[in-house]
Design a binder for these strands. Structure first.
Length: 746
DNA sequence: GACGTTGTCCTTTTT
DNA sequence: GGACAACGTC
């Protein structure tokens, strides 16, 4: 026990050993937040205050919950299996699998990811002849999700105008459709769980009694519904240990509400507020940069990080001519670091949006440097995998129209639009699922659909006799998915992915403790059984391997494939870097419109959130931080010119080191950049050359007295006297007369 | 009526 | 660059 607590500082120790009351821990980046959380859990268990089943620990990402479980099993000698640790979504899924009957769900309910959600909405619009131009599926999805995040059903939303009324109508149609199919979207997992706890008193009492200690990480990222869920579950004399950092709130776009932190203080009568401001991660210049940047935000609880580590190195900034050169510079720089003995897995390339990874990947690949991309198009989000999963989802629940539609004619088997419209109509008239309506058809459509039906029946029968991995191989063969991709000229990668699916399932089963040989799970549970059982039972005792695997496919999307130990450069978005740390961090693509993202300007407090995102990015670095931006970048298949991010103006200049003058590029006769060469650290060149009139070029960076820094995006007419479209970033796009406007070259 | 091809649209971040 | 819809062809 003493061992457990000996490495904590005063504040950390105080937090870990707080009495059983609600508490709010304001924990800055790198202040030992995860350490405090896990040590508290271990301490509670080891000191005998609670058994493992009395703890509920909530995180926001799968990565974080895995990390927590890892650390716990290192600290504790006992099994951590019965501790409920997971994401909100994962925990709610588990809860609903136990109590599906009470929640009004079929045993094998399927979880929809956002792609699936969109296609449900599309089908719905078609079915009811609703104009998808006027009611874009994506907008509808945002609307539904936002409502659910606030805990609202269709009939609980206030009607403001006619358009909104129609949104609400479609919302209830959507709910109806999902219920009929037995499908549940991400937000629904939470709302269902909440409703069930809310309505069902015995169940609520049971869980309130069971979870003596609730701990939650990244509290600033909770949305309204999650807050209500915590409140309900913790009961009246709630005991919630919340850890968070308002400066790292970066999920407002999915409903997170920072105000929950101050609300929590009041609602949960928090007596214990502890601030962890000592940073153990980063050197001084890095922290100064982060502190100075975030001080530009208005809505803050207030907190300043400090360190004992000393100033360390200056922040290195690089301006590239293009995204390609930025990528080349990245390679050059990390090769240098590696040659100095830095390890690749401690170096991260961060970017604002996933699309930016491509060019960096290409450069790394060409240089034969091992790298690992997190996020992006995940394994289970790939088209071919989604098809395979849809076959399995359909045999698991024949009412799943979404899965049905996805695969009924894929690979194509001669079932066209007309036949499906006919089927749809028949199904709608009899209020049956598509699959079960097949026998009521007539003529040729009936004939071809019956053959599809027997395919599904065949697979279904096989599923009772085979293990999951074998079943998957069977599906791939019988459905002809593999054959289809083999016949495609660029289908080889997809064939490989499909082949990986069965081994992925077998790894999953063994990790989750399932019996590999059988797919059977004949235990059908009454509510009381479930209550009695789940105190110390594994999820594998209650859920069929198939259901579990399908949930896993939706909830985890196969993010981190297990080669974490390989020494490779880490590539990820800033969002997915939250909670991680690296010796060297490169924040790339720091251009107006990209970071901060242009969409954020239209959103209330959007720029503040982007700034917090930047804050998160900066505080990932331990020893060395690089910032880079490019004058031009390929975007949507087009070359776009940008100017450097406004965030550069919000950094402490004394901590910055502008690298540009220390590098030069070698160009061949065709003006292609052949290689990037490390140059000498020369004198700083003057940055602004005042020149009278000369020929302007697209892509030229300019300075204007009123509008600030900009980039020439287009020139009309003569390049000396014509007019130019100039992108002034936050000051907008201006059309200026080149002979009149006093522009300076930068 | 089904299938392959072309054209058009969008493109932030995650469970 | 990718997903989907509309188009023309078999």
């Amino acid at each position: 026990m003493q061992n457990l607590l000996k490495n904590l500082n005063e504040e950390q120790l105080a937090a870990v050993t707080l009495p059983a009351q609600s508490a709010l821990i304001l924990a800055g980046a790198g202040s030992g937040k995860t350490k405090v959380l896990t040590t508290r859990i271990a301490w509670l268990i080891q000191s005998g205050q609670v058994s493992t089943s009395g703890i509920l620990a909530v995180t926001f990402t799968n990565k974080a919950s895995k990390e927590m479980l890892n650390r716990l099993s290192n600290m504790l000698q006992i099994s951590t299996n019965s501790i409920w640790v997971g994401t909100f979504h994962g925990l709610c899924n588990r809860f609903l699998r136990f109590h599906y009957q009470d929640a009004g769900l079929p045993k094998s309910f399927q979880i929809l990811d956002s792609q699936d959600q969109i296609s449900v909405i599309r089908r719905l619009l078609k079915k009811f002849n609703i104009d998808s131009e006027k009611y874009p599926p994506k907008e509808l999805m945002y609307f539904f999700n936002k409502a659910k995040d606030r805990g609202l059903r269709a009939n609980e939303i206030e009607i403001i105008d006619d358009v909104q009324k129609q949104y609400i109508n479609i919302y209830s149609l959507y709910e109806e459709q999902c219920n009929k199919e037995g499908n549940v979207d991400f937000a629904e997992l939470l709302l269902r769980s909440y409703d069930l706890l809310h309505m069902n008193e015995p169940l609520r009492n049971h869980y309130q009694n069971r979870f003596k200690y609730i701990l939650i990480d990244e509290f600033q990222d909770t949305n309204d519904l999650q807050y209500k869920w915590l409140k309900l579950l913790s009961g009246n004399d709630g005991n919630v240990f919340a850890v968070g950092d308002d400066d790292q709130s970066i999920y407002a776009f999915r409903g997170a509400n920072v105000d929950n932190m101050s609300l929590f203080k009041k609602d949960f009568r928090v007596k214990n507020l502890i601030k962890l401001e000592k940073n153990y991660r980063s050197f001084g210049h890095i922290l100064d940069t982060a502190n100075y940047l975030i001080s530009h935000n208005n809505r803050r609880l207030g907190k300043n990080l400090h360190t004992d580590l000393g100033h360390g190195e200056l922040i290195r900034i690089f301006e590239a001519e293009s995204d390609l050169i930025e990528a080349k510079w990245l390679i050059e720089e990390i090769s240098y670091l590696v040659s100095l003995g830095w390890s690749k897995k401690d170096i991260a390339f961060l970017y604002r949006s996933n699309a930016q990874s491509r060019i960096i990947e290409y450069a790394l690949f060409s240089a034969s440097i091992p790298y690992k991309v997190y996020g992006g198009l995940r394994f289970f989000e790939r088209a071919e995998i989604k098809y395979a999963i849809a076959y399995i989802a359909l045999i698991n629940n024949l009412n799943n129209d979404s899965a049905f539609m996805k695969i009924v004619n894929f690979p194509s088997r001669g079932i066209g639009m007309k036949s499906l419209e006919y089927l749809q109509k028949t199904a709608t008239n009899s209020n049956n699922s598509l699959y079960s309506s097949i026998p009521f058809l007539e003529g040729k459509p009936r004939f071809i659909l019956e053959s599809f039906k027997s395919l599904i029946e065949n697979i279904s029968k096989a599923s009772n006799e085979m293990s999951l991995p074998n079943l998957i191989d069977y599906v791939l063969a019988k459905s002809k998915l593999i054959d289809y991709y083999k016949s495609q000229k660029d289908g080889l990668d997809r064939v490989e992915n499909l082949k990986q699916l069965s081994s992925a399932s077998s790894i999953f089963l063994s990790e989750e403790g399932f019996n590999q040989d059988s797919n059977a799970n004949e235990k059908s549970l009454e509510i009381n059984d479930a209550i009695n059982l789940n105190n110390d039972s594994n999820i594998s005792d209650l859920i069929s391997p198939l259901d579990a695997f399908l949930s896993y496919a939706s909830l985890e999307a196969g993010d981190a494939q297990s080669d974490t130990y390989q020494d490779a450069i880490q590539l990820m978005t800033v969002h997915s870097a939250k909670g991680l740390e690296f010796d060297a961090v490169f924040i790339t693509g720091l251009e107006e419109g990209l970071f901060p993202h242009e969409n954020s300007e239209k959103i209330e407090d959007g720029i503040e959130e982007e700034r917090r995102l930047m804050y998160v990015a900066i505080t990932r670095a331990r020893k060395r931080l690089y910032l880079s931006f490019a004058q031009s970048r390929m975007l949507h298949g087009q070359k776009r010119f940008g100017i450097k991010s406004r965030f550069f103006n919000e950094l402490p200049q004394a901590s910055l080191n502008w690298l540009n003058q220390k590098y030069h590029f070698e160009k061949d006769e065709d003006n292609n950049i052949s290689d990037l060469t490390r140059g000498f650290a020369g004198e700083l060149l003057p940055t602004k050359n005042k020149i009278g009139s000369f020929s302007w070029q697209i892509g030229q960076s300019v300075f204007h007295k009123k509008f600030g820094e900009g980039v020439i995006v287009n020139i009309e007419g003569n390049s000396i006297y014509g007019r130019a479209n100039i992108n002034f970033g936050s000051n907008g796009m201006k059309l200026l007369d080149l002979s009149i406007a006093k522009l300076e070259k930068i």
